[in-house]
Amino acid sequence: MINVLKSIVLGSTIAAALAGSVSAASLTVGFSQIGSESGWRAAETSVTKQQAEKRGVDLKFADAQQKQENQIKAIRGFIAQGVDAILVAPVVATGWEAVLQEAKDADIPVMLLDRGIDGSPDLYMTMVASDQVLEGKVAGEWLVKEAAGKECNVVELQGTTGSSPAINRKKGFEEAIAGTPTVKIIRSQTGDFTRAKGKEVMEGFLKAENGGKNICALYAHNDDMAVGAIQAIKEAGLKPGTDIKVVSIDAVPDIFKAMADGEANATVELTPNMAGPAFDALEKFKADGTLPPKQIITESKLYTQADDPMKVYEEKKGLGY
């Protein structure tokens, strides 16, 4: 145990020495997290803690339990403690002007994780987020390549109607397949981002499309709906992953299990590591004052069955998804 600690300390010292003149170990960062609304959120929290530990950052964590007033209180607390930076995953988009102005007056940089806010961009240093349109695009491009010029009818399971990931992931996918007339969406319905609805809607699609024989691929706006739909495909006597290709977004552990079993084909990762790029930007800023861009886009990585899904599953399982 002591050896492990020693190597961590040693490792981070070396990393800090390599990173630049300033030692990251001296940084104290406050992190106001929304709460535990989803598995992804829990994974984001544990990855943030891991990242802080790896870099020797002293992370002060505050769980807001889905309430903005708790986040404002936490941020005020961080300001009073004189932290070096504040990370916020804002629960809502509005009402941040006053408290972020206080942070600005105290010269504490604020970084937004995953979600943006309405208000002047001067109030924060940068926002780390994924590009939801790109996520849909990566999924679509994979399918176009996979179809290889052959006719491919796609059914789409949308997220909650009107939510921004549903709108953007649909848009990105449609952009990606726009130039390929052989790949087209024949049915599209909302599955509310849940397994149960994903399964129910897929059952409907399968019946309406000649028992699923007209369907070449399923595109689901999140993995949970895909997991539900996979069960529906199996119950209809078809092989998911072979008879009907399955591509979805998020990269939660369970989809890797399905990929290992050959029942899902690809997923696009919404990385829970939003804090890593934020810490990178912060270290650079502390070292030589370089201001990061206002928006840092995280990578939308594509995973397929070729990427050793069982190994990724084991890695992700412990993150609290």
């Binding site: 000649n210 119950e235 209809a236």
Partner: peptide, 20 residues
């Protein structure tokens, strides 16, 4: 959907929209 009332046996259970 004209096939709404179609029923068949799939893996030992009735399968069709009506059953859904």
């Amino acid at each position: 959907f004209p096939g709404f009332f179609d029923l068949r046996i799939q893996d030992g259970r009735l399968f069709g929209s009506l059953i859904d």
